Simulated scan of single mutants.
Amino acid sequence: MAMLNRTHTPELKRTAAPPVTFRQGGVWLVALGAALWGLDSLLRVPLMGAFTSTEIVLIEHLLLLLFAVPAVWIGRRQFQSLSLRHFGAILFLSWGGSGLATVLFTMGFQYGHPSVVLLLQKLQPLFVVLAAKLLLNERLPRGFSLYLLVALGGTYLLTFGLQAPFLGATGGQLTGSLLSIGAAVLWGGSTVMGRYLLTRTNMSFETLTGARFLFAVPLLFGLAVLSGSSLSAMGGEALKAVHLSMFLLLALLPGLLGILFYYRGLSSTPASSATLAELAFPATGVLLNWLFLDKGLTVTQAVGFALIWWVVYQLSVRR
C-alpha cells in the first residue's frame, strides 16, 4: 500500500524531502508508528480463541469505517476522474492489501510462532522492488539477486533454524511462515498500487486510506459467509466487553494510528533513517510476545532476522 503498507519500502523515497532532524521529530514518528504495529500479535492471538481469522479482520474493518466513511465522503469528488485501471488498483489495494493480506497475517498467528510471523513482514520491500519492476518498469537495484539470496537464507533460518525442513520442523512452522509471506507479497503489491494511484491521480492519502478500509468490507463479509461464520453470533454473546475493547485497540493503535504516525514521519525522514527507526516494530513485537505470550526467539532465528533487515537497509540506502 504505498503509504499504506506495514513496513517501509525503498520506492517511497522523496528526493526533495529535507533532512530529518530531532526537532522535526520525523524519525521518532516513524518509530512510534512501527512500535504500534508491534502490538498486533498481542491483540490478535487472544481473540483467536473466540473468533476466526476472517471474523477478526471483518470486525476490525467495521470499526475502521468510523474513519473510512467520512474520509471517502469528503473526498468523493476525487473518484469522478478515475479510469477503470485506477479502480482496479483501488480494488487490489483494498481486497488484496487490506482484506486478504490481513486475514493471511492473522491466520499466521494460529499456525506459526507469533514473532516469526511479525518478523517475516520485513520481506515486504523485496516484493515491492519486484512488483515495481513488473508493473512500473522501475530498475532493480544493483546486486539485487545477491540481496534476494541473502534474504531467502534469513527467511530459512527464521522459519526452520538449523534443522532440515520437512524433517524436524512442524507443519505449523511452515504453514505460519507461508501465510505470513503471502501477506507480505500482497502488502508489497499494494504498496506499488498505492504509489501508482497517489502519483497518477488526484487522490489524497486520506481518501485512499478510507477507500482501502471501506471497499474491503464487502469482500470480508463474503469470506465470512463462505467460511461458515454466523454473522449474528459475531455481534452476540461471542463479542464480550473484553473482546470489544481489544478490537477497538486493534483498529485504533496498529490499524489506524500506526499508519498515520508512520507516514507523517516518513514524509520528512530519509529512507535509511526510517529503516533504522522501523526496528521499533520487531523490537516491540518480540518483547511483548516474550513477556505476555511466552514466545521467545532462538539465537538462530535472531540471526535470520538480522540478515533480512540488513538486506532491507542496503536496499533503502541504495535507492
Rank of each mutant, 00 (worst) to 15 (best):
L39W: 13
F92C: 05
A238C: 08
I259A: 10
L223C: 13
L276A: 13
S83V: 03
A302L: 15
W95Q: 03
L279K: 05
F221S: 03
L62R: 05
V150D: 07
L250F: 14
V150G: 09
L266S: 03
N137L: 10
G97E: 05
T159S: 11
S268V: 15
V103S: 11
Q163E: 12
S145A: 15
L307A: 15
N202R: 10
V303I: 15
L186V: 09
L119M: 08
V217H: 08
G161L: 01
L167M: 08
L174M: 13
L119Y: 00
F215C: 01
G97I: 02
L219S: 07
G99Q: 07
V185A: 02
P218M: 12
Q121C: 05
A302K: 05
A131S: 09
R264E: 15
V128E: 02
T102H: 12
E60V: 06
S227V: 02
R195C: 03
L65T: 04
G99A: 12
L91K: 11
L248V: 15
G143R: 00
E55F: 03
F215P: 00
V192R: 00
N5C: 14
A302H: 01
L152D: 01
L248Y: 01
V150I: 15
Y111Q: 05
T9E: 10
L266W: 00
S190W: 01
L208F: 01
E138M: 10
V20W: 00
K122R: 07
N289D: 13
L167Q: 13
I259H: 13
V150Y: 06
S230K: 09
L136C: 03
Q80S: 12
L32W: 15
R6K: 11
N5Y: 01
G188H: 12
P18F: 03
L266V: 07
R14M: 14
A101P: 06
V242G: 10
G38Y: 01
T199I: 04
L32K: 06
A306L: 14
L149Q: 11
L135F: 13
A68Q: 04
G108E: 06
L167D: 06
A131D: 01
L149E: 07
A35Q: 00
L134T: 05
A184Q: 03
A184C: 08
A101M: 08
L62I: 08
L250R: 04
T15Y: 10
V57H: 03
Q314W: 09
V217N: 07
M3T: 10
K13A: 14
V45P: 00
S268E: 15
L64F: 09
T15E: 15
G75I: 00
L226T: 12
R14W: 02
S81R: 04
